[in-house]
């Protein structure tokens, strides 16, 4: 049973994810998208990067590659799927999760540490935390503003499918703490099943203790729950 980290042309956080998972003793391998999904896949990571140069829209091309049909099927069977950054954009573009991650309000690429509030602690991705916990995790994106129409956002909220929101150090959801203008400070959402999650911040970059903290470990542990 192995986690498959899907590498598209232009993925560049695939090896980071691999090292982070190895540190957590979660068996993982990088899978080139054209090779298809290995039969023994126990979890899936859509890693960060700039697949297909972000042409058309970030994640749009990768979301239409044939392996995504296999990933949607696996997700429907309950295989955990985690999309990070470009992987989150791919997740939304492919319909695994709702909404869209689009141009930051600043119209700039932003690379900085942010705080996230855990909105639910009963999902595989957040079982290591308590609701309301504040995590410090880096972002690195130009298109991370969560956008969805207001009615649909209300429904997603009432279905408890917002997983993380940008907050300040004390867990307050302020405008200043929202780095990219995301609606209702949304940083990560769940798919139809709790076993599918996407987020713009990078938990794999705060998993190895030597390189900047361990707040992201719990998110990645969602991949071992299968």
């Amino acid at each position: 049973m192995t986690v498959s980290i899907i590498r598209f042309g232009g993925s560049n956080c695939d090896r980071d994810a691999g090292r982070a998972l190895a540190h957590l003793d979660i068996d993982a391998e990088i899978v080139w998208h054209e090779d298809g999904l290995p039969a023994d896949t126990s979890g899936i990571v859509l890693p960060g990067g700039f697949s297909y140069g972000d042409y058309l829209r970030a994640g749009a091309m990768a979301a239409r590659s044939p392996i995504m049909d296999e990933i949607r099927e696996a997700a429907a069977d309950g295989v955990p799927v985690l999309g990070v950054c470009n992987g989150a954009q791919v997740g939304c573009e492919s319909g695994l999760t709702e909404g869209a991650f689009t141009t930051n309000e600043s119209a700039r690429f932003q690379c900085e540490h942010v705080y996230l509030r855990v909105e639910r602690d009963d999902t595989p991705w957040t079982a290591a935390y308590d609701e309301g916990d504040v995590l410090e995790i880096p972002i690195a994106h130009g298109e991370g503003r969560y956008e969805v129409d207001d009615d649909r956002l209300e429904e997603l909220e009432s279905e408890d499918r917002v997983l993380f929101r940008y907050c300040d150090e004390d867990g307050e959801l302020t405008e200043d703490a929202n780095p990219n203008g995301s609606k209702h400070n949304v940083a990560g959402v769940l798919g139809e099943r709790d076993s599918v999650a996407v987020l713009m911040p990078h938990p794999e970059r705060v998993t190895l203790p030597d390189v900047g903290g361990t707040d992201g470990q719990g998110v990645l542990r969602g991949l071992e729950s299968a």
Partner: peptide
């Protein structure tokens, strides 16, 4: 973009 969706590049 649909009406009401922020367009930061256009604003810039």
């Amino acid at each position: 973009l649909k009406h009401g969706v922020l367009d930061p590049e256009a604003e810039t």
